[in-house]
């Protein structure tokens, strides 16, 4: 029993050391992003299998997709990742108002992406291209649909962060949620960067 000595380490109270809290939050988010990639991983695996099996079908049906709208959305998302990164750097220098502006821009980009996607889906349904049409469209709707859910989740997170920032919660000393929220938004962006060529640009 005496092997494990209990000594005073001068750490009282429940508060976790802020440095530990920061590294724990960041580590936790990276792990979470890993699970998100695995969630999409199932779809990527299905994509690989079915594309190998039905190469011609994929080639024929991808022509139905609107490359212009897809490209615009790609640019919109990449731009939003830039504004998000600028926001993180702004708050690290203590510029709270700049962060608010950049968060608003990022959120608007997310909404623009959603509106764009709404019209895209609408056009598909008008041409009777539904998830039940073929394996290709099943994949298209599953992958972009699941991604869209993540965009909504990202917008929600960023809105909460915006509200907290307007209340003055973040500063140069404390900005972990902004950084961690930013990581999530970058993942949403990154997944789209894979989806766009896989679905729209097959040749």
């Amino acid at each position: 029993m005496e092997e494990i000595a209990m000594e005073d380490t001068h750490s009282h109270g429940h508060q976790i050391d802020p440095k530990v809290e920061y590294s724990a939050a960041k580590f936790g988010m990276w792990l979470f992003l890993g699970t998100e990639i695995l969630l999409f991983g199932g779809l990527f695996a299905a994509y690989a299998i079915f594309r190998a099996k039905y190469a011609e079908l994929f080639h024929e049906q991808h022509k139905e997709l609107d490359v212009t709208l897809g490209a615009i959305n790609t640019v919109v998302l990449i731009f939003s990742s830039l504004t998000m990164a600028m926001g993180v750097s702004a708050i690290q220098r203590g510029k709270r108002n700049l962060l608010s502006i950049l968060l608003v821009i990022t959120i608007l980009c997310g909404i623009a992406f959603g509106v764009n996607k709404y019209f895209e889906y609408g056009a598909k349904f008008e041409h009777h291209l539904t998830p039940g049409t073929s394996i290709f469209f099943a994949l298209y709707f599953m992958m972009t649909g699941l991604h869209m859910l993540h965009v909504f989740a990202g917008i929600t997170i960023l809105t909460v962060l915006l509200v907290l920032n307007l209340k003055g919660k973040f500063s140069a000393n404390y900005n972990t949620p902004i950084e961690v929220g930013g990581l999530y938004w970058h993942l949403v962006d990154l997944i789209w960067i894979y989806l766009f060529p896989l679905l729209y640009l097959i040749s």
């Binding site: 991983g41 199932g42 079908l57 998830p131 039940g132 073929s134 709707f141």
Partner: peptide, 28 residues
């Protein structure tokens, strides 16, 4: 766990929208 998550989601979608990943009649 994420992999079973997406699997069950696909199963649900198969029942709701008939996406056919697992249905040989639709090439699945």
């Amino acid at each position: 766990t994420p992999v079973v998550g997406i699997t069950l989601l696909l199963l649900i979608m198969e029942r709701v929208f008939g996406i056919g990943f697992f249905d040989p009649a639709k090439g699945g």
